[in-house]
Write a protein that binds this DNA or RNA. Structure first.
Lengths: 339, 339
DNA sequence: CTGAAAGCGCTTACAG
DNA sequence: CTGAAAGCGCTTACAG
């Protein structure tokens, strides 16, 4: 292994001078800088990450905690992960991916051992057991997903309340008076998936306001249950003319279900989902949707995290809770109801 | 930060004794061991990962290189990633996720700086530019995907040749005499996605052997092109009675396409894909498929990698190239052709 | 503008 | 069975 000592010797300078020449942290004569750079190239020197971390207390790694729970939809998670990983790299950080079932103890392991400079948590629950660990950690943390208690952390999420209202208003404006809202499975709610009820409660309230009947139900997230459950709903509420989906798995399953029933959107049924444009493409989903902006949320979380990591003042800045405004991407799956 | 020095002082022993008590690498009196353990618990000590890495030259991290290319299908990649990450954790390793566009220089960065003890590469191409870098690295590497040159590396992949033959034979046995094989986009082939032609060539040969007409074509991987291309194929080969898919995006788009044409599998068309059971569930795909076993391949790669990392003899063992035998998962999407 | 030295927090021969 | 010391490869005050 070639060390900075080798570089220094080859350049005929001391190790400290070699180090400073590379970091640029103090003035170095042009000639010495040149000799050091030449030596680096000639020997193929790269600083040892562990040694640097030990000396500087900076690892240049951020931890990404992603939980892949049985009843959650993995492909949706991937988009957040890539947003985080790509942004981290742009800002000079590598990403330690943690997918442990037990997120709290994994988090403790990573933070206590100083493997990372900061953390991004995905899929954050109302009363997330990882948060007390994260608050107690010496590293700053950023969340994608709104918990009950945001203290001491930066939080980024879609404005699910507004998304719920938008869905209802859009349908109401077209003339719909009876709608079905399919949320995530009840398990997700029980586990504290706050976005489920944030969207649902707002939608229900808006429906009351507009005089619209809204049947709010929990969906499923795995085949074949998700398909069966959609069939059941359409059987149960035959007069509903619009379908709102806050459930990626249900959205992915809907084309098949509609096909099996011989229905077409928007002729027979108007449909609005809540997922990203990328998700729509990947799953060939022809339904209008509220853009969930996973890449943007991942970027925002990492940017803020790195700001806190890198600046003294950043550490002390007040914590932020930032909501992305929902946007409706029109894919022509809604229309006036059949009369 | 609490260090092993703090633990040693609290336990009234030297730092080396504290270290040995924790590692168990030499005999320690029961009483001292007890005092050290108590101190660890009381102070909440966790070893500093960077310091340990520096002292031992072991990071207990493996690097996972995943390339998300524009014309490849991300959700399929996720399954491999989780197989790797979960297995790594079981074996005591964390996972550094690298998703850089430029895989070769990212790989060099990770290996030169000694951030990882070993590497798993996904999505390996015939003439993968990352392989020379990996071979030159001091850490061992394992591949998921078969390159042209396997020297110096452990390689794991699905037996795509056998998969191609199985698809053709299965259809032939049911009485089909004209089939369409939809592969990945031509870009994937040009970039060296060897599995595309490994399956295709074997399928073509088997078709000749059986007297079956096989139209082998490149598909697309993004909406809306993938749907249009499937429509085009069904228009071009109206007499084909069976469809073989070596293209996850095409499989995901097929339900919608068949719906739009008013076709049903297997009544109007027999279909076999090549994807995992998990993928079938996630995308609600009702088609029989050759199991691509991403989790198993990820596990195998990590197991072998860790064996090489951890044992002296493991380092020296001959390199392996191991193929997973394809299995056909029957979802009742094939039948005798309509006469 | 440059160098000698201390220190980051571990592990592990070397001594006893 | 235990301790004092060296060393892993860096960075960064401290001196000049």
């Amino acid at each position: 292994m070639v060390t900075i000592g080798d570089v220094a010797r080859a350049a005929g300078v001391s190790r400290s001078t070699a180090s400073y020449a590379l970091s640029g942290k103090r003035a170095i004569s042009a000639e010495v800088r040149q000799r050091v750079n030449d030596a680096v190239l000639r020997l193929g020197y790269t600083p040892n990450a562990g040694a640097r971390a030990l000396a500087t207390s900076q690892t240049m790694v951020i931890g990404l905690l992603a939980q892949f729970l049985e009843d959650e939809f993995a492909p949706a998670m991937l988009e957040y992960m890539l947003g985080v990983s790509d942004t981290a790299r742009e800002l000079g950080y590598d990403t330690l991916l943690v997918t442990d079932g037990d997120g709290a103890s994994a988090l403790r392991r990573i933070t206590d051992s100083r493997m990372v400079d900061g953390l991004v948590l995905l899929n954050v629950a109302q009363d997330d057991v990882r948060l007390p660990v994260l608050r107690a950690a010496p590293q700053p943390g950023a969340l994608v997903g709104l918990p009950g208690d945001c203290s001491g952390l930066d939080v980024f999420d879609l404005d699910f309340e507004e998304a719920g209202r938008m869905m209802v208003d859009h349908m109401h404006r077209l003339g719909h008076r009876e709608l079905i809202l399919v949320s995530q499975p009840e398990h997700v709610v029980e586990r504290g998936g706050a976005y489920v009820w944030r969207l649902q409660d707002a939608a229900l309230q808006q429906a009351r306001l507009r005089g619209v009947t809204l049947h709010a139900v929990f969906g499923e997230s795995r085949q074949p249950a998700v398909g069966r459950s959609l069939h059941g709903l359409l059987d149960t509420y035959p007069d509903a003319t619009g379908l709102l989906l806050n459930n990626e798995a249900a959205a992915a399953a809907l084309p098949t279900v509609l096909h099996e029933r011989g229905l077409t959107a928007p002729d027979d049924l108007s449909v609005i989902g809540r997922y990203s444009d990328e998700f729509a493409r990947v799953f060939s989903l022809p339904y209008s949707s509220i853009e969930s902006a996973p890449d943007r949320l991942g970027r925002m979380a990492v940017r803020q995290l790195v700001r806190r990591i890198e600046s003294e003042t950043g550490r002390a800045e007040p914590y932020v809770v930032r909501f992305v405004a929902p946007e409706l991407v029109d894919r022509k799956s809604t229309a006036a109801p059949r009369t």
